[in-house]
Nucleic acid binder design. Sequence first.
DNA 1: AAAAAAATAGGTCGTAAGTCCTAATTTGTT
DNA 2: AACAAATTAGGACTTACGACCTATTTTTTT
Lengths: 233, 233
Amino acid sequence: MRDFQLQVRPGTAASSKGQERVLKILKSARDLMITSGYHNLTLRKVAAGAGISVGNLSYYYSNKQDLMRDLFDTVIENYLLEFDNIRQNTGDSVEDQFVAIVNFIIDDMRTQETTNFFPELWALSNHDDYAAERMNELYIKARLVLNELIAVLNPALNEAERQQVSLFISASMEGLTPFVGYQKPWAEQRPMIANIAATSFLHLALNIRSEEINQALSVPPSQLRQNKTVVST
Amino acid sequence: MRDFQLQVRPGTAASSKGQERVLKILKSARDLMITSGYHNLTLRKVAAGAGISVGNLSYYYSNKQDLMRDLFDTVIENYLLEFDNIRQNTGDSVEDQFVAIVNFIIDDMRTQETTNFFPELWALSNHDDYAAERMNELYIKARLVLNELIAVLNPALNEAERQQVSLFISASMEGLTPFVGYQKPWAEQRPMIANIAATSFLHLALNIRSEEINQALSVPPSQLRQNKTVVST
DNA sequence: AAAAAAATAGGTCGTAAGTCCTAATTTGTT
DNA sequence: AACAAATTAGGACTTACGACCTATTTTTTT
């Protein structure tokens, strides 16, 4: 399994030994989240995975919520570092940079941690405000780089429209995860899907017009819902 | 909260009273899944929500796995019924039908059950084979209708290419859920996002060429990953 | 009405969870 | 070496879980 760069939260552990422990704890928690899901993540399993006792674990994290929040912070921080790497290492033309980012994000879905961790985060964000906040932060920053590129590719759009296009592109890519990710039914088609995505998103970024964003194309959705059977709550 | 049409699995409950019970049990389980997430769903809470005792619950579902499987079957079956409704109620032209489906799916994200249930299913599918199978079935059927429309919109594509385009469009729409769904940060932008999606997907379906699917646009992803810091496992 | 089947509540059992406490050990500092 | 701070293991405590059992009540069938 590929690893990320775990960062010790300042103040948690004093000595270098303590910092190593925190690293092992976070790694154990992350692995459990990825391999078994949040509903199977217990402090006892985290401690066992880190090779320490439950009592010792509670010395570093006084309760489960603290541990989970640190885990979110750490994992998300790591992905933000990756995004910074992208911005500096992409090709010359703006189109190339745009395509490179799309390819990077979709290619990253081949890993088990991306495939498994983010759906846990999405589900958790529906019931945990802290997870929702950190997730929001993550994607805001992820969209920033798209936003800047779209500003160059399509100067006719205003800032709000740009952000909507960025949101659509970013969210669309995330949606591919449960389908072309690690050991998913369509995993082998990931390269072709990436090509479709790059082609489609680049055309969208270059050619979308304000009117197309602000005016419905046709057929209002309400027309579809006429004969649905709905039971009272 | 909007309700779906719950269907009693044959053989589970004999009498009509028993069928009503099963309905209440499934509704309680679904509500818990939506409001609190799978990690908070316990048989005791399900029983309490259904207004029965735990002992009585175990009369209908001898273990938790049985209940969860029936829940997946029921929820997914309900969504398949919705898709059947769409196919019959869309407008005249193929373009209109296509846009109507996109609008319907994105509009459906405004509901709490769609916003919250599906991320739970995505996360669960990474650790539960049964959930993965049923989820796969669901999306296969959801893509069928897209597939048929694309066949008309773009006759130059072969079947495999069509399916890849359908997969991309379907997965992209799903990805919008954690961002423009119920009480999400961008929920108010859902109509504009739906417009962008409809415009982008329709253009994709109409104009994508085989070469664009099978040949990378540019910049291989490996080029981006050169100076990443990776820690051993 | 009697018998059979279905449904129900209540309780028990073993296990596992998060949290907390304390004594012992290790590490770092003077 | 002596002392203080940091770290650690082990266990206890309460609560909750899924699973199971049994006696009782309700419903259906004969």
